[in-house]
């Protein structure tokens, strides 16, 4: 258990943990923040919460499950008090990633996907992220606390919305 570690071991363990799983932090930050500065702030905040929570790791769950819970919980609640929450718009501006500004079909699709995610509520964002990360319904249920059958229903609805959104794009 992590809580048995002394300060130095804890620091090393933390650095190793972050290094191995930084992708989770970055993907959660990407899902919940459109602005690059906000994303950096959120990754920082998640790191702090992981550091604070190291004594609470429950080996019954995978480490990725534990990290997703902390990261998503931080993104939804702790971060909301600091962030100037973006509304459901996604203007192309100086903070827009370069891959969206480029005008190929793929870039347009990427922009549309980001815009779609941005419009979802906080819990649906989490479901969408975990679905895109190919997590099983059981794992998504463990992370979110929603029953596996409910996860299936919710994801089904989100997928339907995406389908409609992308089919509209194809008409142009």
């Amino acid at each position: 258990m992590i809580d048995q570690l002394n300060e130095k071991e804890r620091t090393l363990q933390f650095q190793d943990l972050i290094e191995r799983h930084k992708g989770i932090l970055l993907k959660v930050a990407r899902t919940y923040c459109r602005n690059e500065t906000d994303r950096e702030d959120l990754v920082q905040e998640i790191s702090i919460q992981i550091w604070r929570s190291m004594g609470r790791y429950n080996s019954e769950y995978k480490i990725s499950t534990w990290l997703y819970r902390i990261s998503i919980n931080t993104a939804i609640s702790f971060y909301r008090k600091h962030s100037k929450r973006q509304e459901n718009t996604f203007p192309l501006g100086e903070n827009t990633p370069a891959y969206i500004v480029e005008n190929t079909e793929k870039e347009i699709q990427l922009g549309l996907l980001d815009k779609f995610i941005n419009e979802l509520n906080d819990f649906d964002k989490a479901l969408m992220l975990l679905y895109l990360e190919e997590k099983s319904h059981i794992e998504i249920a463990e992370i979110t606390g929603i029953t596996p059958s409910n996860v299936g229903t919710k994801i089904g609805r989100i997928k339907e919305k995406i389908k409609v959104r992308f089919s509209k794009l194809n008409k142009f």
Partner: peptide, 19 residues
């Protein structure tokens, strides 16, 4: 599509400084 954009995003993110 999601994975491609993530790869690009992770490359551009200054994570070492932050983490």
């Amino acid at each position: 599509l999601w994975q491609t954009s993530n790869d690009k995003f992770e490359l551009s993110f200054a994570e070492n400084r932050i983490l």
